[in-house]
Design a protein around this nucleic acid. Structure first.
Lengths: 344, 344
DNA sequence: CCCAGTGATGACAACGTTGTCCAAGCCCTA
DNA sequence: TAGGGCTTGGACAACGTTGTCATCACTGGG
């Protein structure tokens, strides 16, 4: 990775500093600082002269230097999985809104589901001295953050819990949501239900699989190996899984898909399939209402908002024990989940 | 807006500095700096002692202080309209990837289509001394950025051009795309076509409206006032517009929608309508393929990537005149745009 | 007329890092 | 053995800001 900051000569047109402003206004450095920060103890006339100098020079305070003195940066880091995933956009935006209300700016970074990249990103943010860190984990070992947290970086995990450290986490009820979604299919008469999910090392994916199994077990239904397909969200992989489940010796009559990306591919695959097949997906999707796709919706914005609020509560001095908050999910019946199994 | 950095006492557990590391390793301050930065001139034995001290203390270099010395921050700011809009997620992600390849981190901020907020955000980023700024304009006067650009902040505008200043811009061909989309409808026999778009003070919205008019004029077709409805993307507003156009004395037989949010609402409204109505939308939408919605697609990721590349070229010293790059659009025929007008 | 009190102002150190420069130790050659 | 070069290390200033403290000019009361 190239490193900009290491390049020797700066091409910057030099910026005016408070010293320049002071010289131009014929006042002391500290007086400029006072004006800029709205501190009291400056006569209106002096203030006017300073403001004129600021205006004339196009001065803007260097917050980097300020940070060095003050300790706090009014900056928060958000490490997520992929900003291009429509699930994370609203989450990120919600974090941003809370940060903004607290006067903080937001660093954004995507881990691309790579633990090393997650770590690299989180530590780079710590080196920039963010006040707080919100992390959607890609990895399952976050001990690397311990020194940072001890040093005072408030840290909240979202969507998935931290691995091997004790930290705040804000999660959706993946287990309960999946269980409800599958139970919904069972209630509509299905007995052979397939599960297509993300890689099980991802916490949410494992939880949803667990929810699927729980619902089946609660109903006294068996689960065949051929009905369970965890793995990548690659469209080819998912399409193949759909095809195989529908062609198995004991074919499934309904599918539960483990997240938005899987659902999209499953919907496409089912559209190509002849008979209608019941489907419930985890995560809502834009236009799913028009397609009549029944989903278990989680509130991405609420996840982000809750996490950010918790973060700022800590930054405001709250000294509570790390806590795990679980947000509920909502089943939205739109048709695909209410299709009855074929009369056999 | 509250200001975190202004709070007096820092709750931070104090972090070790290079001085602490030097003391513990029994070497000079500068030697630690050398080790941390991989400079030569340190014996392996000394280096080992320093690394041990770093490890033991959990030291991490303070990049804020570093920045103060070096001038560059290896930080780029992105001001966009709304991170929760699925159009901007991929754009932001593309910018991030380019930034990452150059060793830079990304600040993200949403203007919420509010010019004041755009300015506030952009200037806050400048105060943080970002090396470069990528802006999706909400306002139409960017003279406030002139001092910053003179001071060396590389600036590139995306999606919409800057107002009242001369600056790089990377745009999609809104005019051409809209003209092609409307021409497509005309080619399928439509003569009364409605346009529902975003507020015309937004550059892209105005351009698309212009493209619509051009296509109609090229075909020698009249445009009735009742067929043109620029305005907010509020679902109620858009639904009403759809209803009115379909119920007008000379009802439209096809609609062109000006962006992704409008399209979504139009699709919903048309689904409630009895007869099929032809539709072409600007911007692609997830699952539009399944719904058979014909769209004029722009490549959001390419917009972001191109803008970021241009930004870093400038940061690398390129001293070219400001330029306007226009990226082409693609018409994706999926059914809704190929519906013939009713036999009259 | 003097002194304490008040308000405006500036000098200076400090934040944590890096660039510059100098010193000490070493090895080599003449 | 003197002199030169190379390697290693550290002292110090500087980056641009803010906190502390001292100074100065006034004010009003005794």
């Amino acid at each position: 990775m190239a490193d900009i900051a290491r390049r020797p000569e700066s091409r910057y047109g030099t910026r005016p500093t408070m010293k320049d402003v002071a010289a131009r206004a014929g006042v002391g450095l500290k007086t400029v600082s006072r004006v800029v920060n709205g501190e009291r103890g400056v006569t209106p006339d002096t203030e006017r002269r300073v403001r004129e100098a600021i205006e004339a020079l196009g001065f803007r305070r260097n917050d980097s230097a300020r940070v060095l003195r003050k300790g706090r940066t009014a900056t928060v880091g958000l490490v997520l999985e992929d900003l291009a995933d429509p699930f994370y956009g609203p989450l990120s935006r919600a974090v941003e809104e809370v940060a903004r209300a607290h006067g903080a700016l937001l660093f954004n970074g995507s881990s691309a589901e790579d633990p090393d990249r997650e770590q690299e990103l989180a530590l780079a943010l710590c080196a920039r001295r963010v006040d707080g860190l919100i992390v959607i984990p890609a990895g399952d070992d976050h001990r690397y953050l311990e020194p940072e947290m001890r040093a005072g970086v408030a840290t909240v995990f979202v969507d998935r819990p931290a691995g091997r450290i004790d930290a705040d986490a804000v999660l959706s009820d993946s287990f309960g949501g999946a269980r409800d979604g599958v139970a919904h299919l069972i209630a509509h008469g299905h007995r052979r239900i397939g599960f297509i999910g993300d890689r099980p090392r991802i916490h949410t994916a494992a939880e949803r699989l667990r929810g699927y199994r729980a619902a089946m077990e609660d109903a006294g239904l068996p689960v065949r190996d051929a009905w369970v397909s965890p793995g990548s969200t690659d469209p080819d992989r998912v399409s193949t899984a759909v095809r195989e489940m529908l062609a198995a010796p004991e074919p499934v009559t309904a599918l539960f898909s483990g997240n938005n990306r899987v659902t999209v591919t499953v919907v496409r695959a089912l559209a190509r399939h002849g008979r209608p097949v019941a489907l419930v997906g985890f995560d809502d999707i834009e236009l799913a209402d028009l397609l009549g796709v029944t989903v278990v919706a989680q509130d991405a914005a609420a996840l982000g908002r809750t996490a950010a609020q918790r973060l700022f509560r800590r930054l405001d001095g709250a000294d509570e024990a790390p806590e795990r908050l679980v947000l509920g999910t909502t089943l939205l019946a739109r048709g695909s989940g209410e299709i009855a199994p074929p009369a056999a």
